[in-house]
Computed example of a mutant assay.
Amino acid sequence: MIDFRASVEGLRPDQLDGFFVGWPSPPSPEQHLALLRGSAHAVVAMDGDQVVGFVTVLTDGVLMASIPLLEVLPGHQGRGVGRALVEVAVSLVEELYQVQLCCDDDVRPFYEKLGFQRVDGMVRRL
């Protein structure tokens, strides 16, 4: 059974293996934990003692929030974990005017099913 937590308290780097598949320079598990801790909100999906998915939220706390990262381990994809992570994350900032994110075209239908709309945007990846 998957447990969803809106806290990263007590997480360890060794619980964060297997993420950032295909990234040319993926963050280390220690950096991954630091980015979770540094986010305004972070929600993790736990399968026992292992993190199998996570989502981060950045916000100004007044009008806007952004979801910069959502990842689910390949072996747990297609089971509703990503959907649940986004739903919990959005519920944490539902009083704000807008929640935005950038995504690649292949995952756009996933976000559209969650109520997100396509808009023009720009991104610079370093």
Score class of each variant (00 low, 15 high):
residue 1 M to E: 10
residue 1 M to D: 09
residue 3 D to R: 04
residue 4 F to H: 05
residue 5 R to C: 07
residue 6 A to E: 14
residue 7 S to E: 11
residue 7 S to M: 13
residue 8 V to D: 01
residue 8 V to E: 07
residue 8 V to G: 01
residue 13 P to T: 10
residue 13 P to A: 06
residue 13 P to G: 12
residue 14 D to K: 01
residue 14 D to W: 06
residue 15 Q to E: 03
residue 16 L to Q: 00
residue 17 D to M: 11
residue 17 D to C: 03
residue 18 G to E: 15
residue 19 F to S: 05
residue 21 V to F: 12
residue 21 V to N: 10
residue 22 G to I: 12
residue 23 W to S: 07
residue 24 P to I: 03
residue 24 P to N: 09
residue 25 S to Q: 11
residue 29 P to Y: 10
residue 29 P to I: 00
residue 29 P to M: 06
residue 29 P to D: 11
residue 29 P to H: 11
residue 31 Q to E: 15
residue 33 L to Y: 08
residue 34 A to N: 09
residue 35 L to G: 08
residue 35 L to N: 15
residue 36 L to E: 10
residue 38 G to Q: 08
residue 38 G to F: 03
residue 40 A to H: 10
residue 42 A to I: 04
residue 44 V to K: 02
residue 48 G to C: 08
residue 49 D to N: 13
residue 50 Q to S: 13
residue 50 Q to I: 13
residue 51 V to K: 08
residue 51 V to G: 11
residue 52 V to D: 04
residue 52 V to C: 10
residue 52 V to R: 12
residue 53 G to H: 08
residue 53 G to R: 04
residue 54 F to Q: 07
residue 54 F to D: 02
residue 55 V to A: 10
residue 56 T to K: 00
residue 56 T to L: 12
residue 57 V to R: 01
residue 59 T to K: 06
residue 60 D to H: 00
residue 60 D to K: 05
residue 62 V to Q: 04
residue 62 V to G: 04
residue 63 L to C: 09
residue 63 L to D: 03
residue 63 L to G: 00
residue 65 A to W: 07
residue 65 A to T: 06
residue 67 I to G: 07
residue 68 P to W: 07
residue 68 P to G: 01
residue 69 L to A: 13
residue 71 E to F: 00
residue 71 E to M: 00
residue 74 P to A: 02
residue 74 P to I: 05
residue 75 G to Y: 06
residue 75 G to E: 14
residue 76 H to V: 04
residue 77 Q to F: 07
residue 77 Q to P: 03
residue 80 G to K: 10
residue 80 G to V: 03
residue 81 V to I: 11
residue 81 V to N: 08
residue 82 G to V: 00
residue 82 G to N: 03
residue 83 R to I: 03
residue 84 A to K: 11
residue 86 V to A: 08
residue 86 V to L: 09
residue 87 E to H: 04
residue 87 E to S: 11
residue 88 V to T: 14
residue 89 A to R: 06
residue 89 A to Q: 02
residue 89 A to K: 01
residue 90 V to C: 11
residue 90 V to Q: 01
residue 92 L to S: 02
residue 93 V to F: 00
residue 93 V to Y: 00
residue 94 E to F: 03
residue 94 E to W: 08
residue 95 E to Q: 06
residue 95 E to L: 00
residue 95 E to H: 13
residue 96 L to A: 09
residue 96 L to V: 13
residue 96 L to C: 09
residue 97 Y to M: 07
residue 98 Q to K: 01
residue 98 Q to F: 06
residue 100 Q to R: 13
residue 101 L to K: 07
residue 103 C to E: 05
residue 103 C to D: 06
residue 103 C to M: 12
residue 104 D to K: 15
residue 104 D to A: 14
residue 104 D to Y: 15
residue 110 F to K: 11
residue 111 Y to W: 00
residue 113 K to S: 15
residue 113 K to T: 14
residue 114 L to F: 00
residue 114 L to W: 09
residue 114 L to G: 05
residue 115 G to L: 04
residue 115 G to F: 15
residue 117 Q to G: 09
residue 118 R to L: 13
residue 118 R to G: 14
residue 118 R to I: 01
residue 118 R to F: 03
residue 119 V to D: 11
residue 119 V to I: 14
residue 119 V to M: 13
residue 119 V to K: 15
residue 119 V to G: 08
residue 120 D to N: 09
residue 121 G to V: 02
residue 122 M to R: 11
residue 122 M to H: 07
residue 123 V to I: 12
residue 123 V to M: 11
residue 123 V to S: 12
residue 124 R to Q: 01
residue 125 R to L: 09
residue 125 R to P: 01
residue 126 L to P: 01
residue 126 L to W: 07
